[in-house]
Design a binder for these strands. Sequence first.
DNA 1: TTGCGTGCAAAGGTTTTGCATGGCA
DNA 2: TGCCATGCAAAACCTTTGCACGCAA
Lengths: 137, 137
Amino acid sequence: MARSSNYNTKQKERILNILIENSSVHTTAGHIAQCLQAQGTPVGIATIYRYLDQLADDGIIRKYTIDNKTGACYQYIGEKKECKEHFHLKCVKCGRLFHVKCEYLSSLDKHILSHHGFTIDHTKTVLYGYCDNCSEN
Amino acid sequence: MARSSNYNTKQKERILNILIENSSVHTTAGHIAQCLQAQGTPVGIATIYRYLDQLADDGIIRKYTIDNKTGACYQYIGEKKECKEHFHLKCVKCGRLFHVKCEYLSSLDKHILSHHGFTIDHTKTVLYGYCDNCSEN
DNA sequence: TTGCGTGCAAAGGTTTTGCATGGCA
DNA sequence: TGCCATGCAAAACCTTTGCACGCAA
């Protein structure tokens, strides 16, 4: 947790920029590498992983695993705590991820805690199923 | 979903036995391989992975990813149809799995369908968090 | 100048795949 | 007998690590 590193580098800035640009969805280390490559400002994959770990430790981004084919997913949360509060719905057919935030779902947390003594961790929880499009077929 | 496979083999039986013996906790493909090895009835790791995928598709076991250092975790659920209707809460600390069925949670399905157009698949969905015991610490 | 940060390549794991053989029905 | 299932090894991935060099402060 306690980080000794404090140097500011171009690489870190670039990585963080990609994360912020993609803050509405989650990304992977590989995807970040591709983006930077395409931009003409490549950064070594090892550096990306190292910095990603740091950011996750510092709570600036979130790390979770949706399935272990694609590898770990990272998402910028910054100051906002939204993603710690709402649910993620993953369509197993088309693969899209939906961020859902509403009163009803927020009260679900309280219900599960008070009635079932269980504290949900939204950074790890994903609801699987079929989205509007895919359930019609 | 539609499985073409229907042959019964010793390997499948052995794998399923390990899963049932360990149904109170989650296991990994590697762990199953070790157990079978130790028993003197080794089964190829590829076979284990293939059968595990099948069982997960059929809803007989659950597959999760707690973190991507240890790899995917599997846990026996059984063929009970109840498990297709209620929620599963997985404590990421002690590893216990809780089966939760209540009115409130059932209405959650309807809410998500009517308000968010999403159909939850309970055979694939697990809510992660901390159970009563583990959240106290 | 000091020492962390970076990049490369290699290593370490887990999971998947190709192909020939073996076993179920 | 026809096919699926299995096992082995190799491949494909993702992620981490060692080491020398570069760069921030």
